[in-house]
């Protein structure tokens, strides 16, 4: 019986080790986990979003005034510079005047990091390469055959796939590789914030709740012990 258990254990551990491939044609996505507590990073991420994403992708679950409050942006910058559509009020959602369903099939990005995960998005944004067989002229290692054109090429420069299947830079963009990676981290941080604005308060205040219950447990334990003495 014990031998059987052992065999079972070995067999199961073998079964467990077979990992899942959920990063497109890549073995593994690049490690990254978003941080929504770096205000400047979120603001920079918003900047990239407004410049490169907002012309196609809505954030239809996020309100302008929520963004204003959480990212500490002066109201006049929101109303005068960021809201570019007339009749949009500050309490409205960030749809940038686009219809509910995108005519070109660009998905709404509010919940995207929750659907795909931070790592997927971070890797996806950085693995575009030139592919003339695609209508958009570019392809992606993570989302093979993506319809999205490489709008970030101006920043990153163009990449191509060499015969070994790795990405090589073929032209320079306005940013160095590190600068670009940092920018994409900002963007993913911003998207992670958009996916769950409450995450800022949640992660900030959770510590106090847990500390309270640690004290609670300690006091209750003393109380219990006082009475448990009689149970000897």
């Amino acid at each position: 019986m014990k031998k059987l258990l052992l065999i079972l254990l070995i067999l199961s551990s073998y079964g467990f080790s077979a990992g899942e491939n959920n990063c497109g044609s890549l073995e593994k996505c690049d490690a990254f986990s978003s941080n929504v507590h770096d205000l400047y990073s979120l603001q920079r991420g918003l900047g990239i979003y407004m410049n490169y994403c907002a012309s196609c992708h809505t954030l239809k679950l996020l309100r302008w005034n929520r963004l204003q409050k959480d990212l500490v942006i002066p109201e006049n910058i929101i109303t005068e510079e960021l809201i570019r559509t007339p009749d949009t009020k500050i309490a409205d959602h960030m749809t940038f005047g686009m219809p509910d369903v995108s005519p070109i099939g660009a998905p709404d990005l509010t919940l995207r990091t929750r659907v795909r995960g931070d790592e997927w998005i971070y890797t996806y944004l950085r693995t575009f390469y030139e592919d003339p067989s695609q209508t958009s002229g570019s392809n992606n290692l993570v989302y093979v055959g993506t319809a999205m054109p490489n709008v970030l090429a101006g920043l990153q420069g163009n990449q191509a796939l060499d015969t070994g299947g790795t990405l090589v830079s073929i032209s320079e963009g306005s940013m160095t590789a590190e600068e670009f990676d940092d920018s994409m981290k900002d963007l993913v941080n911003f998207l992670a914030y958009a996916a769950e604005p409450a995450r800022i308060t949640r992660e900030k205040n959770g510590v106090f709740v847990i500390l309270f219950f640690i004290v609670f447990t300690a006091v209750m334990n003393l109380l219990y012990r006082e009475y448990a003495k009689e149970l000897k």
Binding site: F213, I214, F216, T217, A218, M220, N221, L223, Y224, Y227, A228
Partner: peptide, 10 residues
Amino acid sequence: TFGALPAIGI
């Protein structure tokens, strides 16, 4: 009852 309290805390 008091025995359950620390457990609830944890």
